[in-house]
């Protein structure tokens, strides 16, 4: 569904244009793209490698992405929070490099520093399955953070890389929150109380993020915010219900947004990714898709339609100030805090 079909208020458009907007999770960047427009998004966490990539493969993927950025005048690599503010002033889209797995580090802690050196700023601890640091959200008996994982988290903090706990097992994530010297985040996850899904968060996980003054990026990807409603796919209002729930639980200062959408014009690549993902991890989106089909039909906000979220938050009664926090201000504060600049 194209952006033009969604009517947003002039007030929402104005506020959105004046704000720093940060998307907590996007993927598949491959150079100049119509999907990244500075008036839609100021900066976005872009997953820089496939989730199963080992060291050699992930490093190659990061460096290919860096080369793709060199021929893209509309985007800029983000190394500090100040870079995000500068991107806003320059009218560019900031690319924050993230991994959705710790697997590229394998069991070599020195690679954390190396990855920081080549621009990585966010690393997710596990992705659905078990890895050397802990268990993912699809492991039946989550065995928790490993001995290596505890050292890994300390190294991330020492190297000023943000710890992301999305896709982690519940026990692993709770132990990681306790172990992390820096404030942790879930870059893209929702309250399980509103939409039941192994990817979503219990109240305990949400509260602990509040206690540690971390961040939760509420996720507009339909299978995580459909409220298990078999009658129709979710609307942006359903998404805002998830925002409300977390704001009620831990306050408005620890909430952000994430679309989990692609940042490439290569539709075939996205379709293939979606098919592979659903075949490998049917427990996450299988039931949703059986009722409502895949992403193309979902009609939910993506990285180029984030203004719809701004519009929905204002309609829900959020103040301009709180809306600005949710659509990017909180993530900016969080990144400044954990990146040390």
């Amino acid at each position: 569904m194209a952006v033009a079909e969604h009517i947003v208020s002039a007030e929402a458009r104005r506020l959105h244009d004046a704000s720093i907007v940060i998307d907590g999770l996007t993927f598949y960047y491959d150079g100049p793209t119509e999907r990244l427009v500075a008036t839609d998004v100021t900066a976005t966490n872009v997953t820089a490698a496939e989730t199963a990539s080992n060291f050699a493969k992930a490093t190659e993927e990061v460096m290919v992405l860096r080369q793709d950025m060199e021929r893209d005048d509309a985007s800029v690599l983000i190394r500090t929070a100040a870079d995000i503010e500068q991107a806003k002033r320059d009218g560019k889209v900031g690319i924050i490099l993230g991994f959705q797995a710790s697997l590229p580090v394998e069991t070599e802690l020195w690679r954390v520093q190396m990855y920081h050196d080549i621009g990585m700023r966010i690393v997710q601890l596990t992705y659905n399955d078990r890895c050397y640091t802990g268990d993912g959200c699809l492991v039946d008996e989550d065995a928790g953070l490993t001995r290596f994982g505890a050292r890994f988290i300390e190294e991330l903090a020492a190297r000023y890389i943000a710890l992301d706990l999305s896709h982690c097992g519940r026990r692993t994530s709770l132990e990681a929150i306790d172990a992390s010297p820096a404030a942790p985040m879930f870059s893209h996850a929702n309250p399980n109380a509103i939409t039941e899904n192994p990817r979503n968060l219990t109240d305990e996980q949400i509260r602990k993020i509040g206690e540690r003054k971390g961040m939760i990026g509420l996720c507009a990807w339909a299978p995580l915010c459909w409220k298990n409603n078999t009658a129709h796919p979710p609307t942006v209002e359903d998404f805002v219900d998830h925002v409300d729930y977390v704001v009620d639980l831990i306050g408005v200062d620890h909430v952000g947004i994430a679309t989990d959408s692609g940042v490439t014009d290569n539709q075939a690549w996205l379709i293939q990714h979606s098919a592979d993902f659903n075949a490998t991890f049917p427990a996450i989106a299988g039931e949703y898709i059986s009722h409502h089909g895949g992403r193309a039909e979902s009609g939910m906000p993506e990285v180029n339609t984030l203004v719809r979220i701004t519009d929905a938050l204002l309609r829900r009664g959020y103040s301009d100030v709180d809306t600005q926090k949710i659509i990017g201000g909180n993530f900016l504060r969080h990144f400044r805090n954990v990146w040390g600049a």
Binding site: R130, Y132, T146, F148
Partner: peptide
């Protein structure tokens, strides 16, 4: 330590085999 197969003798949690 724990690897993708199971736990090692210094792993504090002493968990069992993984599915892999």
């Amino acid at each position: 330590e724990r690897n993708l197969l199971g736990d090692g003798c210094l792993e504090p949690k002493n968990e069992g085999l993984s599915p892999l």
